[in-house]
Write a protein that binds this DNA or RNA. Structure first.
Lengths: 344, 344
DNA sequence: ATGAAAGCGCTAACAC
DNA sequence: GTGTTAGCGCTTTCAT
């Protein structure tokens, strides 16, 4: 069953059927009605590959993330997909696991399917592997790390805002010995978080003791290890700020095993505000980097680029703010029972 | 750049280029080499839509799940995708949120893209909405609920095996007042779990008190509510088995708020063994329904159906076992310090 | 073993 | 307004 079959039965040309389906306004209502009724009757659905072939538009966007099993990403995927469907786009999803081989194969698949744009939300720096896409002038959107080029957009994260709030929140609770567990420092995003922490401490005249800044790797296990090192060190922190939520969850886990009660003995703050942060016990205070918002920005960046006639010479920048969300993992240093009130 | 360009530069016909790309063995090595080198040089990638159009094979499978943000699904998506890529398939992913409208739109999109098969892993019963797919003889694979039809396969879950292990584990720890929090009972999978619980209790001569069986909805909030109802009831359970992990996490959360210590005062067991089960405090003992295995079965079912010449009249059944995974949320009823040893 | 050519299902330019 | 028709980029007979 194809467009000709419909044309025959509706006694019109294939062009009219095509116009009807694409809602071209010049089709007379009478004919349109006849065509639609045949379409309904036969349960006809146009063939996307054929449409894509002739129109030169696949209506597919690529979405590259690190790992769908990393709790940071599912919500991004969900929102991205929802918006895509609303705009009649399909998405080609790939988890690369930061494996260059998989990244390469993802790029090949995307080119073969002729994606109209790709969002690279890995926070990594596999930029080189994307040469093939750039060559083809496929619109790209990165987080923080995209090069200044036409058709390459960037979502800039304002790490400082939320981290400053976190530090000031801890300071307000009388904490001074505040530790920071970083992410893998080869990641620009991890480095930026660390810098934001140091700066925030300095701003309020607190010294960020180098012995209280240890490197993690953004996993729960990494958080556990890092916290163990912290405990073994010369200074016992009363609060610890983590470069992401999984790290913070590792700290909570390790604290529990070590008999340290949160928030009574130790205040903990995460970063990202993944959903899981609400589920742990106690619910984790975290610096929110809105995943829905990130997904929305990424999609809109691609869509804007696709629709733009003349691309900006250095791409476009978008800004994503971060904000502290208070829950129950922080308290006054005294260890008194005064818990910080829940925000929600 | 297209296949003609390659043909021209390699001084062969487009047919030869096509054969080379598709590794048809009759192409002479000399020509093949020439063709490949032109392909490399120009960075040519064949256009998938054109191939799909002429070959009639899209090399796309649909994957329908409830919600990617439900921690049960990310690993399934990950494994399904990985296997798909290995077989040069792409996947069209949809979260329906059990919303019939979204289900309908998903089906339409999948037909328009001419998917070669669809895995429906929603544990729901939106079967009616899939009529259009069945009409087109698209291979389908369900969990438990697929009708006996050609080209419709089923993955049958052996709920009893794991739930029996869970009940016997609790019994071995001297628990007798064992509660069960069900899922939404309109779901066949939730009903099957409940039945498995009742039967397991009966098998070992324990009475499943109806007042200890309450309905939840497979969410954390539902687990909290259900457990509250349990606490308000006439009998105080010493152990609670939950229809899924999120429910169990709700119970843990509520227990924490109520000052009930797990596993000292209450043993808790979940179902599904999502990754999150390892992250909560204490790590949750759970009945594992292997998500990688489920994904693998689903993919292979579709692939087998695509490659089968003559479909089995009533589809094919596959079996997925369940097994108890011991962690730290269960203990002897005495409340003594004897913790069950970790399995890993 | 290789090439010429038909055609997959659709859109869009052009003609009326 | 509506129809005719030439492709979109590829695979696949059918000749040779």
């Amino acid at each position: 069953m194809d467009i000709r079959e419909i044309a025959r039965r509706a006694k019109v040309s294939t062009a009219t059927v095509s116009r009807t389906i694409n809602r071209v306004p010049t089709v007379s209502p009478a004919l349109a009605k006849r065509v639609w009724s045949v379409i309904e009757e036969l349960g006809y659905y146009p063939n996307t590959q054929a449409r894509a072939l002739v129109s030169g538009r696949s209506r597919i966007f690529g979405l590259i993330i690190s790992e769908i099993t990393n709790p940071f990403f599912p919500e991004i995927v969900q929102v991205f997909e929802t918006i895509a469907v609303q705009h009649r786009y399909e998405i080609l999803l790939t988890s690369t696991g930061n494996d260059p081989t998989r990244m390469e194969s993802a790029v090949r698949r995307m080119i073969e399917r002729r994606v109209e744009g790709v969002a690279i939300l890995t926070f990594g720096m596999e930029e080189v592997l994307l040469e093939d896409l750039k060559l083809r002038k496929v619109p790209l959107v990165f987080v923080d790390v995209g090069p200044p080029r036409p058709r390459v957009s960037n979502i800039r994260i304002d790490y400082l805002n939320g981290i400053r709030q976190a530090v000031q929140h801890l300071a307000a609770l009388r904490h001074e010995k505040i530790a920071f567990i970083t992410g893998p420092l080869r990641l620009k995003s991890a480095m930026a978080r660390k810098q934001a922490f140091l700066r925030s401490m300095q701003e309020i005249g607190l010294e960020a003791d180098p012995r209280l800044v240890v490197e993690g790797d953004h996993t729960m296990e990494g958080g556990m290890t890092a916290f163990t090192r912290l405990l073994a060190g010369p200074i016992r922190p009363t609060a610890v700020l983590c470069s992401n939520d999984m790290t913070a969850i590792g700290v909570m886990r390790e604290s529990h095993d070590a008999g340290i009660s949160i928030p009574r003995d130790l205040s903990v703050i995460g970063f990202d505000d993944i959903r899981l942060a609400q589920f742990v016990i106690p619910p984790l205070t975290s610096v929110q980097m809105s995943q829905p918002e990130l997904a929305r920005l990424a999609f809109n960046a691609l869509l804007a680029e696709v629709e733009r006639e003349v691309p900006a010479p250095n791409g476009t920048d978008y800004l994503l703010k971060t904000n502290l969300v208070l829950r129950e993992s922080t308290a006054l240093i005294s260890g008194a029972s005064t818990l910080v009130e829940k925000q929600r």
